[in-house]
């Protein structure tokens, strides 16, 4: 109470000063305090437009994250090293998650090389790995992809290591957007272990069901 009143008072003062400076200002009203979920979205989930491997334009927050449980990784098609293994591993994860993928759990693989990985290239890649529905490969403007990579923390503070894209493909992030629950694990874990990890961000009701049955 004390907090809000204090700042409302100062705000009135400031607007008063602005008015005195011949600036036209909209009505003064106190804004509702944002929820932690809204603040997290503002901070970490830029609502940029991406294109799916099926050629559909989507908004990152509105269409891909909002109200969903999601798995997010970064990849690129012409990646040797650990990339192909990661995608193959995630195909197994998708199978284990079954029909929930595309219903309340969604999988997203964002290319680190949007200039090479067009929707068509990604579509062929997804097809080659027999990726099922509910898992989208995403490309977009280079600057938007870079913004997402930064915001989602797929970065290395060592600038030399950071330019090496193969340093950003080993981590899998997963979370429950409405419940502001986020964590991560190595993408190379055994598929069943990844599924168990994701259960930590499952809906509270699902957890009730699971209770007592496992260690």
């Amino acid at each position: 109470m004390r907090y809000r009143n204090k700042f409302l008072g100062v705000a009135l003062l400031i607007v008063g000063v602005m008015l005195a400076g011949h600036v036209s200002v909209a009505q003064v009203e106190t804004k509702r305090v944002k929820t932690p979920r809204e603040r997290l979205a503002e901070r970490s989930f830029p609502n940029v437009t991406l294109t799916t491997h099926e050629g559909k334009k989507v908004k990152f927050y509105d269409d891909l994250l909002k109200d969903k449980i999601v798995l997010i990784n970064f990849m690129y098609v012409k990646c040797e090293g650990t990339c192909p293994g990661t995608t193959a591993n995630l195909v197994k994860v998708q199978k284990l998650l079954g029909e929930r993928v595309g219903k309340d759990i969604f999988m997203y693989s964002i290319t680190l090389k949007p200039e090479e990985d067009s929707p068509e290239v990604l579509k062929a890649y997804a097809k080659a790995y027999k990726v099922g529905p509910g898992w989208q490969f995403l490309t977009g403007d280079t600057k938007d992809i870079e913004l997402l990579r930064q915001k989602l923390g797929f970065i290395d503070r060592d600038p030399v290591r950071d330019t090496n894209k193969s340093n950003h493909i080993t981590m899998l992030r997963w979370g429950n957007e409405p419940h502001t629950l986020w964590a991560g694990c190595p993408a190379s874990l055994a598929p069943a272990k990844i599924v168990k990890e994701i259960s930590l961000v499952d809906w509270p009701a699902a957890d009730e069901v699971r209770r007592g049955g496992e260690r």
Binding site: F7, L8, V10, A11, A26, V28
Partner: peptide
């Protein structure tokens, strides 16, 4: 930081702020 919060508290829209 205080200014930012004051502007928010004043309910200025992004457009208002750009205009100003």
């Amino acid at each position: 930081a205080r200014n930012r919060r004051e502007i928010v508290a004043a309910g200025l829209s992004r457009r208002d702020m750009l205009r100003m």
